[in-house]
Amino acid sequence: MGVSALAEGGSGTSYPSHREPDGSIGIKLLEASSNRKNDPRAYLYIVDHINPGTRVSRRFEIRNTSSSSQRIKLYPGAAEIRHNTFVPAADRHANELGSWISIDRPELIAPPNSRIQLNAKISIPKSASEGERYGAIWAEVASPSVKPGSAGNIQMINRVGIRVYLDIGPGGDPPSDFRIEQLTPGRTEVGMPVVKATVNNTGERALDLGGQMWLSDGPGGLNAGPFRAQVGTTLAPGYSAPVMVMLDDRLPDGPWQVKLMLESGRVHHTVTGTLTFPEKPATWGLPALLDSFPLWALVIVGSLAAVAVAFFLVLAVRRLRRRRRVAQ
């Protein structure tokens, strides 16, 4: 049996480190790449764009908060984005990261209540193909092996990891961006108000979304928030997913002025609008009326308008020709 944990980012202007409970092991990245010093996501995960034939290294730390020594194995492994969640791949060698990443101490004994600094080297061959790979650097602890056939012959394996988002290719880092397409207010089965934000990854890199929501100008002039968006949503390029914000069950239905700020690393977007929560549990209300019309929607409307104008122009020309023929 095994338990795996990958660090997750928080919302706001900073991302917390992966904190381990007392009596366990933890792992923490200690540095970001030089071109991502202003990217809070890069201090939690290894997020990089590397040219083929390049070598880089990253320092990280292992913590043992237990009162006994722990034998820890360290190794890289592949990961994937499945159902908008970053998860370990069933096969740790599913991509090349297992052969590209090496740990300076693949196995060690961590004394009680200790911290140990380690180094991960990433070597990209010149023949590497373009594209983003997902993986993790794992720290694994296994319970003592038991003899087959003995009572309770189950070995527990616990591991914690640092996510790796590694894009390979010439030139600079591909663009990262997203679009907040819609806000929908609703209520859970127990009547808790919730807002669902539909987000589309319009860039070329995976995103880890977090953020905050504020409500203002509610009934009686009420204001509420900030409320944190639920973390854990990882969007692959070209994909859409809902980001949920759970609110206080004491809030009245509205109407409310709403402000939502979402971010992934250095990319931030904010939408504002007006919404009203439905009265009944387990229902969704009408989408919020957003204050700003999205650029993509303007492009679509403009295109449709141009097609309509062209259609009526063609129709008018045909009618004019018919009249001329009748007059002749």
Rank of each mutant, 00 (worst) to 15 (best):
V309F: 10
A236H: 01
T276S: 05
A308G: 12
Q212P: 03
R58C: 01
G152A: 05
S17Q: 13
R59K: 15
V195I: 13
E8G: 05
E140K: 02
L207S: 03
G254R: 01
Y75I: 04
P106H: 09
I81Q: 01
V3Y: 12
I50H: 08
N64D: 13
R323F: 09
L222V: 11
Q212T: 14
R133H: 15
W138Y: 13
Q257P: 00
V258W: 02
Q117I: 12
M192P: 00
S67V: 15
E61C: 11
L304G: 06
V309R: 04
S145Q: 11
D208T: 12
R250S: 12
S216M: 07
P281W: 09
R71S: 14
V194Y: 00
L298K: 12
S240R: 08
P237N: 00
L118C: 01
I180Y: 01
R318H: 11
G210C: 04
S11K: 08
P287R: 05
R205T: 15
G9Y: 05
L290F: 08
T276I: 09
A288H: 04
Q257C: 04
P193F: 08
V141A: 11
G210S: 13
T272P: 01
R82H: 12
T85A: 11
R324G: 08
K121Q: 14
I180Q: 01
Y75F: 15
V307Y: 09
Y165A: 09
S34H: 10
S69Y: 09
G210L: 02
L298G: 14
S216K: 06
G302C: 11
Q155E: 15
G2T: 11
G221R: 04
P242D: 10
W214C: 04
R324S: 14
A90D: 13
S57K: 09
S4V: 15
S114V: 10
G9Q: 07
N119Y: 11
I27S: 03
M246G: 06
F312D: 10
D177W: 08
D104N: 14
G12R: 01
P21L: 12
P88Y: 13
K147H: 07
G149R: 01
P278S: 00
Y45W: 11
S68H: 10
Y134Q: 10
V160M: 03
E107N: 07
A241T: 14
D253V: 10
H269T: 06
R228E: 13
E132K: 00
E8F: 05
I122V: 14
A136W: 12
F178H: 02
V267H: 02
V3E: 13
L207F: 03
T272R: 02
D208I: 08
V245E: 06
R36M: 07
G210R: 06
P242A: 08
L108C: 02
L295E: 14
A241D: 07
L97G: 02
G221D: 07
G225F: 07
P185S: 03
R322Y: 11
R324H: 14
L74E: 02
V56K: 04
P106T: 04
I25E: 00
A90K: 06
R82Y: 12
L183D: 02
N153M: 08
H268E: 14
G12H: 06
P294H: 08
G152T: 15
D48H: 01
L166N: 06
I103Q: 00
R163F: 03
H18Y: 14
P106Y: 14
I300C: 04
I154D: 05
R205Q: 10
